[in-house]
């Protein structure tokens, strides 16, 4: 009995066949390979190619010629591009501040159980799931000069003097779009702040109010510092969205009037798919990519420091 079993027990686990070992070695490839391949072809490779393409002059016909840094030189002197970057920075600052303030106010207002909390949350989040095309059409109508609801409303209230050509006037167009972008995303940022507020230890604010701290003091010295991580998340998401904004502007103004709503992605789109200058458009996109990378690293650093400072 023992003699018959002994060899089987010792050899079987110690010496698996070559095929089994090979199979076990390759098994991770089966699990990870397909996903990684898709991701590599459609994300990694484009990002790498982006840098390469920005050193070329290429058209839609597929001819590619290496031109070195010539595109960057053109870009440096391209007033339209820098104008659109300035617009984009204004857009980013205005939307980030607007979204953060409004969403914080709404989250604070909503952060207590009362009947209707869920109803308000559902309403505020509604614009998040509506596509930019639909939102662009809704607000394109709201802002329309002749029939638009805003001017109509102003007329009825006897404030006709305030009526403006909101999207047709270079002074107002960008800010009108800023307003719509804030309208769409505030509910999203509010939900993130709400999650933060509900994770707060309740004892802290209660102890402070027993010690006589006013509502404002509790907000300023307890709630806001403890929310800094959520503020950081909100800032990053809003900033990334702002620098890649395209849909809303394409639907509402196409960059006009007089280029007053031109933004970085609009320029990239025009250069690539209207003028077929793929190489130069890649250069513009590379600069945008660098801006996005720098901004997100800076914001992450800042919020991390704030977080550690509090902890």
């Amino acid at each position: 009995m023992a003699r018959a079993d002994a060899p089987r027990l010792s050899t079987a686990p110690a010496q698996p066949s070559l095929a089994t070992r090979l199979f076990e070695r390759c098994e991770p490839v089966f699990w990870i390979g397909p996903g990684l391949l898709l991701f590599f072809v459609f994300v990694h490779l484009p990002v790498l190619l982006q840098l390469a393409l920005s050193l070329t002059s290429s058209g839609l016909d597929g001819r590619i010629a290496f031109v070195g840094l010539a595109n960057f030189k053109t870009l440096w002197a391209d007033a339209d591009y820098w104008f659109s970057i300035v617009n984009n920075i204004q857009f980013a600052i205005a939307t980030v501040i607007g979204k953060l303030l409004l969403s914080l106010i709404l989250a604070l207002a909503l952060n207590s159980a009362f009947t209707g909390q869920n109803l308000f949350r559902t309403i505020f989040f509604l614009p998040v799931i509506i596509s930019f095309v639909a939102i662009g059409t809704i607000w394109g109508f709201m802002f329309q000069f002749e029939f638009g609801a805003i001017n109509q409303l102003l007329n009825r209230l006897g404030l006709g003097a305030l009526a403006q050509d909101w999207l047709g006037d270079p002074r107002f167009a960008l800010w009108s779009i800023v307003f719509v972008d804030i309208w769409k995303w505030t509910g999203f940022h509010m939900v993130i702040y709400l999650a933060g507020l509900q994770a707060l230890p309740r004892e802290l604010t209660e102890a402070a109010s027993v010690d006589g701290a006013s509502a404002w003091q509790r907000l300023r010295y307890i709630t806001l510092p403890l929310l800094s991580r959520y503020t950081g998340t909100n800032i990053i998401i809003a900033t990334l969205g702002a620098f890649s904004v395209f849909d809303l502007i394409y639907v509402m103004t196409q960059g006009g009037p007089f280029g007053s709503t031109q933004v970085a992605m609009m320029q990239v789109y025009l250069q690539a798919f209207q003028f077929h200058r793929l190489g130069y458009a890649s250069t513009q996109a590379t600069v945008l990519l660098a801006i996005i990378a720098i901004v997100s690293i800076v914001v992450m650093r800042l919020t991390k420091r704030a977080d550690e400072g509090e902890a």
Binding site: L36, F39, V41, F42, V43, H44, L45, P46, V47, L48, L49, Q50, L53, S58, I236, L240, G241, F243, S244, F246, M265, V268, Y269, A272, L278, A281, S282, A285, L288, L289, I292, A293, S296
Partner: peptide, 20 residues
């Protein structure tokens, strides 16, 4: 390498994506 791409919007690499 996958997580690093979390913050990069698709729009930004549209041209090489188109070429591919």
């Amino acid at each position: 390498s996958v997580l690093m791409m979390l913050t990069i919007p698709v729009q930004v690499y549209i041209i090489p994506l188109y070429v591919i």
